[in-house]
């Protein structure tokens, strides 16, 4: 057995436990926890049974198992970046609303400056 076949399943178990703890503490949504758990289960399965990736690859018309894994990781990363982009965009809009509201409610007078 190769070294990664030991390391990746251990990392996967730790990651799933970590996500479960975060969910229990209310820091993750249920959907995020499930999504990341599925991802780490797939990582663990592929590292324990590397040849399995070939079967999945053939199912979607890709010849090599490694190519399938690379494409899968690429899709996951793309989704993650897109999700982060939308989160940052929403946070920016929220920030703008707050900064505007604070400014409008606090007209600066000459008395403020003297204080």
């Amino acid at each position: 057995m190769l070294l990664y076949s030991f390391i990746f399943p251990i990392i996967s178990i730790l990651a799933i436990v970590w996500f479960a703890f975060r969910y229990l503490r209310g820091k993750n949504s249920f959907f995020t926890t499930i999504l990341w758990s599925i991802f780490w289960i797939i990582v663990a399965i592929f590292s324990l049974f590397p040849n399995l990736s070939n079967s999945f690859a053939r199912m979607v018309g890709i010849t090599r198992g490694l190519d399938f894994i690379i494409i899968l990781v690429f899709i996951i990363l793309f989704y993650t970046v897109l999700r982060l982009y939308f989160i940052v965009d929403k946070l920016q809009n929220d920030m703008n609303t707050i900064v505007k509201q604070v400014a409008i409610q606090n007209e600066i007078t000459l008395d403020d400056e003297e204080e």
Binding site: M95, N96, V99, A103, N106, E107, I108
Partner: peptide, 13 residues
Amino acid sequence: HVYSLLINRGVGV
């Protein structure tokens, strides 16, 4: 009349 944004948010904001 003077207002001040706490942080720089751009000419649009």
